[in-house]
Each structure stands twice: as C-alpha cells, then as structure tokens.
Amino acid sequence: MTVDVTLNVNGRPHSLSVEPTETVVGILRERLGLTGTHKDCSMGVCGACTVLLDDRPVSSCLLLAPQADGREIRTVEGLERDGRLSPLQQAFLTHGAVQCGYCTPGFLMTATALLEENPKPTRSEIVEAIKGNLCRCTGYKKIIEAVESVTG
C-alpha cells in the first residue's frame, strides 16, 4: 500500500507516492538527493537528522512522510540565500563550531529555528534549545559561541 503525499521542501513541492512508514529523513536522502540531513541513531535522540517542520525543529528519523503531507520542510540545503551563507552558517565557519561536521546540519537547523523565534536568546536559552543535538567533537562551546555571535 502506498499513499500520495506532497512534501514542500525548501519551498519546492514534491509529489511522491510513499509507503506509510517511510520516514522523512529517508525520503530526503534517498529520493530527493538532499543528503545534508544526516542519519545516525534513528530513534530521535542524536539530532543529526533535524529539519524544520513548519519552522519547528523535529527529528526527521521519527517523522513519517504522511505526517509531513502538505507541510513546509526546511533542510540545511535551504539555508543559503542566493548562494550566500546565512549569518549563522557564516558564524559556524568563523567560530570553529565545525569539526567532523556530521552534527553540523542538525545544529544549524535547531539554532535557525531558535533565532527566528527569539532573535536575542540568552546563553541558557541557546543551551536549552540545542540540548537535543549531540556533538562528539567540539564540546559545544564553540557552537554556543557561534549562535551567540549572531544574536540581535
């Protein structure tokens, strides 16, 4: 059995016929070629697969395609504007917030949602926002500093 869904990814609609149990991370990576959204734990703990669903960060490994039908999905590939990095992406670059980079897209999406909702978060609000994203390389300090640097 398949169901027809429309996923609006980075502003572009994609009409797809999917298994009801297909996850959004699988569709992004395998069917739309958007491999910037990474997969790791597949149980909603690590945050590597974070995308924005109607502007809110969610684990796309736990999000079934029918749940996202007709809704807006944003991924790391949609952060640039006219080929230019967003200020947050730029800050990750210059603050050394990127090491192996596998967690980076997830952090960028989580922090993007935070800054859109709350352009001037305090340090503890930043920490609270990113607590669901794991990073094994950086110790988080430079990620937090990067987010802080683009606040208001």
């Binding site: 958007l34 491999t35 910037g36 959204t37 991924t75 790391v76 590939e77 952060l79 640039e80 990095l85 992406q89 990750f92 670059l93 990127v98 980079g101 980076t104 897209p105 960028l108």
Partner: peptide, 8 residues
C-alpha cells in the same frame, strides 16, 4: 572543509 559542511 567547513564551507561544504555548513552547506550540508
């Protein structure tokens, strides 16, 4: 390599 990494 960060330029590629922040772009996914």
């Amino acid at each position: 390599d960060a330029l590629y990494k922040v772009r996914g």
